[in-house]
Amino acid sequence: MASTTADLPAASRGIALRKSEGQWTIVLRRFRRHRLAMISLFVLVLIFVASLMAPILAPFPRDATGLAPRFSPPLTTNPQTGTLHILGTDHVGRDFFTRLLYAARITLSVAFSVATAATLIGMTLGALAGYFRGIVDSIVMRVLEFMASIPDFPILLIIASILITDPKLLPYPPFVLDLIGNLMLLNSVGTERAQVLTMIVVLTLFGWTGAARLMRGMVLSVRERDFIESARSLGANNVRIILRHVVPNAFPPLVVAYTLSLAGALTAETALSFLGVGITDPTPTWGNMLQFATNFMLTNPWVPLIPGIPVVLCSLGFNFIGDGLRDALDPRLKM
């Protein structure tokens, strides 16, 4: 039916790339129509705010053990202080709710760091490759092809098992460790900070290819257009051309890819920590909490729900928001 719809006026086609005052209003209106994305946004903001307020909301110290009998059910009152264990206690008597809040902070920070770093690196490499072509392009392309033709999850696991479980192998500048530590409220003694940082590094290493591919394609398709030629003839330099003309065009798909890579980073971190090659106890993450939970679920069946539900809420949430953004930013991308 292509020929019949091709005859339709331009008004019925996409609006996304048109620059106008009302663009963001339209995007917002379209996004608000996506009910699941709106619900997801609400839930994620809630989790996000809770994780930011972890030190205020948490009723107990993060790693304090033996607070109450192990696996006290939810809403047990602490025998000493009389404070409520809202979600009960874990296998060594730590408060579940407290650990869940700190885990949220760590898991979400890791996801955002990975997605941001990977997208920025991918964008830069992709833009360079697409814009300058030649040797830069062939190197980036070879690396991309190589990454595409290896079984990435097993390799990720191997690298994680070597680097993350023994984070002393990588030398980190102290200020970066301090930054990470302060952001995620980590212990400054021991290898906790280095471990979390290594997780970010390793996941970024495997996460940049999508953004690079996308950006390269975008740049390739945009760079031949007339307005780039005219910008160039007016004396704009390359960086300026990329920032002013290419990035805005690549923006809608990149935002969508970013949201989806948040979901990817979150599930990857959870999976690694769950499998025992990621962030290890006592540093709480939803993944390693889930690992302990499954070990004891035969006797305490409610326990896996505690870390499991936030994992699935965030994973689904990022996916739905990505879908909503795809619909809102560029209807033509709709699958």
Partner: peptide
């Protein structure tokens, strides 16, 4: 001219106009 409905007329005769038509 293109867009004047010629093709849609012919597809209508064949009853091959697809959604959203």
């Amino acid at each position: 001219e293109s867009g004047c409905g010629k093709s849609v007329t012919s597809l209508s005769i064949m009853r091959l106009v697809g959604a959203p038509g």
